[in-house]
Amino acid sequence: MYKTIRWIHGQLALALALAVLMYAVSGWFIEYGRLFFPQTPTVNETHNVAELSASAALEDEGAARRAAFAIRDALDLPGRLVEIRAQAPGWVARFASASQRTRVAWSPGRPEVRLEIRPASFGPSLTTLHRVHGASGGPAYFLFAVVVDLVGVAMILYAITGVILWWKLKRKKRLGLSLLAASSAFTLGWIAVLAWGP
């Protein structure tokens, strides 16, 4: 039993070591990254996309969505579609990857596309990677979402198997019990206060 739990704890930690490290470092960057990484300026561009000459009327969201994907493919924009909405005189779509957010605006029946590109340097890109979730957006995003789930489950298992391993390894348990009791009481206390408190 002990060997099985040690095996699960160890192998799971090794398989997800880089992912856990990325989440820890980028979590720290979310709080302090702005101290190290200045904001990158926004770039505005205008392009002609021939596929748009027969694009959607304002009320046709399905066709607008197809037009947005045609623009993405024609201009090789990175990321997945995170928003699309009608905004007179045309449509606005947003594509987001970890390293770039792009606002795309176009009018039905016209080939011009206006881009507002917000590239990000390494630190902010890492913090965006930290926030990537959900399976929509293609196979890469689906697989990334699977990894996010695995990391989530692994975190819970690290805690449970870690406690069991400590219990089996240490004959003197006072210090460990004190730490575990204090941190559990602190965490459960915060959850209870925020959920049911004033």
Binding site: G152, M155, I156, Y158, A159, G162, V163, L165, W166, L169, K170, L175, G176, L179, L180, A182, S183, S184, F186, T187, L188, I191
Partner: peptide
């Protein structure tokens, strides 16, 4: 082990 015990509840929340 001991730092892990201190942060185990946070890992579950996370």
């Amino acid at each position: 082990l001991y730092l892990g015990l201190l942060c185990a509840p946070y890992l579950v929340v996370y």
